[in-house]
Computed example of a mutant assay.
Amino acid sequence: MKKINWLFVLVDKGKPTQRWLIKIRSIQQLIAYYNEISDARQQKSDLDIQKHNKKSDKKIDVQQASQHTNDNSLDEQMKALATNQQLYIDSDGKWTTEPQTEDNFLYRKYPAFPNFTKKDISIKSFNDGVHSYARIGDLEVREGDKIKWDTYEEAYEACMKIIGQNGDEDND
């Protein structure tokens, strides 16, 4: 099977309901997603979850995987995808086909939900510091079509909008 590039979208940026969702656009992606969840569940007894998560966030969290949908829901999800709808799944396994306003997006080669902190912020300036570009971990920060800011402070503020309440947490 072809490697999947998982698309995560940030919705409700700056609101208490802000969250990352994984966007599933095809039945093939959905099957791959459930395979990843199944793999994570099977590894539960073999892994020290805390140690594993500290070493690498490239696997979906087993606790999250255990909360995901059952087979009846899978049938509904497949029907939705077959009628050209898109699925949005949160880190608790809740899903919807309701259109979402996507404030930011991120592609990953693994289905691990983003959980950024201040430590992940990286701001660079080029052209003698005329513009600042911001990243948070593997995310290129953007606001609509805007990907560069006039000052470091503006870029940092854009990062903090995305990090939200997680900004002070330690992710060692």
Rank of each mutant, 00 (worst) to 15 (best):
Q165Y: 07
E76A: 05
I147Q: 13
Q28D: 15
E169A: 10
S45F: 04
L106I: 05
N84W: 03
G14F: 05
D150P: 08
E157R: 11
Y133F: 14
S132V: 07
Q42M: 10
G137N: 10
D90T: 02
D103E: 13
N5M: 09
N53G: 00
Y152V: 03
I4S: 07
I4A: 12
G144W: 09
T151I: 09
E143D: 11
Q86L: 07
K54W: 00
D138H: 12
I89N: 00
I37K: 08
K79H: 04
E36A: 15
E169R: 07
H52A: 15
K55T: 05
E98R: 11
K59W: 12
D75M: 08
A65R: 03
S56N: 10
I22E: 00
K44W: 05
Q77W: 01
Q77R: 09
E143C: 09
S132P: 01
A112W: 03
L10I: 10
Q28G: 07
S38W: 13
Q100Y: 01
R41M: 13
K148I: 03
W149F: 12
D103K: 08
I31C: 08
I136D: 04
N127S: 11
Q77Y: 01
T97K: 13
V9N: 03
L30I: 02
L139C: 13
K146V: 07
W95F: 11
F126R: 14
S38D: 14
A65V: 03
D150R: 11
Q28V: 09
D71E: 11
G93N: 06
F113C: 06
W95M: 04
E36K: 15
Y88A: 06
I123V: 14
L7H: 07
L74V: 12
K23H: 04
K119V: 09
G144T: 05
Y133A: 15
V62H: 02
Y33L: 13
Q86H: 14
A40E: 10
Q100G: 02
Q165P: 05
K15M: 12
K15R: 12
Q85I: 00
K51S: 14
P16H: 07
D150F: 08
K124L: 07
I22G: 00
V11C: 15
I89Q: 01
S91H: 11
S45I: 10
R142F: 00
F113D: 02
I147W: 03
G144A: 08
R142D: 00
Q165M: 01
I163E: 09
Y152P: 00
W20N: 02
H131L: 13
I49Y: 00
A155S: 11
D90R: 08
L10C: 09
M160E: 15
K79M: 06
K148Q: 13
T151D: 10
Q67T: 10
L7Q: 10
D103H: 14
S73A: 13
G137V: 04
I24H: 07
